[in-house]
Every structure is written in C-alpha cells, then in structure tokens.
Amino acid sequence: MNIFRLAGDMTHLASVLVLLLKIHTIKSCAGVSLKTQELYAIVFATRYLDIFTSFYSIYNTLMKLIFLGSSFSIVWYMRYHKTVRRTYDREQDTFRHWFLVLPCLLLALLIHEKFTFLEVLWTFSLYLEAVAILPQLVLLQRTRNIDNLTGQYVFLLGGYRGFYILNWIYRYLTEPHFVHWITWIAGLVQTLLYADFFYYYFQSWKNNKKLQLPA
C-alpha cells in the first residue's frame, strides 16, 4: 500500500458517500444517472468475484464490501425507493449503456492477461469502469442545473483514478515486474474522459459560479 493508492481509495470512498448522503438525506437523485450507477454495480460485481477465494487484507475485503454494498443500494434506491425514484429524470438519462457493456466484454475476450473466467471478467470490469461515467457526463450536459453534491460526486469519482495512476507509477518504480498495461491504459482513458469536466469544474470553482457544462 502507498499513499497514492490510499488517497485514491479514500477519494473513491468519499465519492460514494457523497452520493449516498445526497440520496439518503434529501431523498433526491436529481441529476444522477441510473445508467452509470448500474454500470458501476456491474463493474464491482465482476471485479470482486475473488472476494471469497483470495484474501489480501482486512482493508481490501472491507472496501470491496463497501463498494459492492453502496453501488447496489444506490441502484436499489433509484429504482425502487418510493420517494427517490420520483426524482430520477428518466427522460434525460437515455444513454444506451448496454452498448458499452457488449464491446467491453468482447474486448476483454480479446485482450486480457490470462484466458480464465475470473481474469476475463476482471479485465471486463476494468474496461467497463473506464467508460461507466459516460451516461453521467451526458446527463450533466443535458441538465443545466448541476447541484453541488452531484458535481462533487463526479469530481471525486474522476479524481480517484488519477491517484491510482500515481500509484501505478510508484509501484512500477519500486516493485520489479509490476507491469500491467491493460490496467494502466484503461485507467488513463478513464481519467482522460473526465478532462473536460475537470476543466469546467475548476472554472466554476475559480470564478465561484454555478457549474455549467457546454451543451
């Protein structure tokens, strides 16, 4: 464990807590894309299949349970909670996210480190996570008023993978044979997708005005 990875995990945890806080306290998921939440639930479900077979540390297992639990409960809230589900703007959140799942699955079947069931699904989860934010970014561009909590959620979610990139550089420099091109490229693509969001987020923060993405 290094400080970059810890910072990344804590940022990721914070993004999930911000979203759960928003949904649980103000009982609203306005501006939040259910499609992105469903993709993330699939990402964690396929990434953490080894939760019962391999144990690294209490921290590792605990965080996996938190990410699994939070992502599925957010999907449950947005789909079935009587109050929250009414605040979900179904008409705007129309990104066909299944068009993201299939190509990622095909790519994982083509490009992976080992051709085993767990490894292919794990690789699939990496590719899917890289693009999972797209429905959310599209929704943000459609809904003009981005409330602070949603903006913070996306910002933290984008930041965590940036810390992971620093972690991979650190581990490459300090651990022999630590080379994982698939993870690195997927993580880089994921972070780059946030680039324009980050730009407008910082602009709104600097000029102290509401966050608005160009249509």
């Binding site: 995990d9 690294y56 540390s57 965080m63 992971y164 630590f178 993870t183």
Partner: peptide, 10 residues
C-alpha cells in the same frame, strides 16, 4: 501488502 500483481488493488 504482498503480491506484485495488481489484484491486490480495488
């Protein structure tokens, strides 16, 4: 944390 492969990451 042990193991050099990246499965020990979240």
């Amino acid at each position: 944390w042990p193991s050099s492969h990246s499965k020990d990451e979240l």
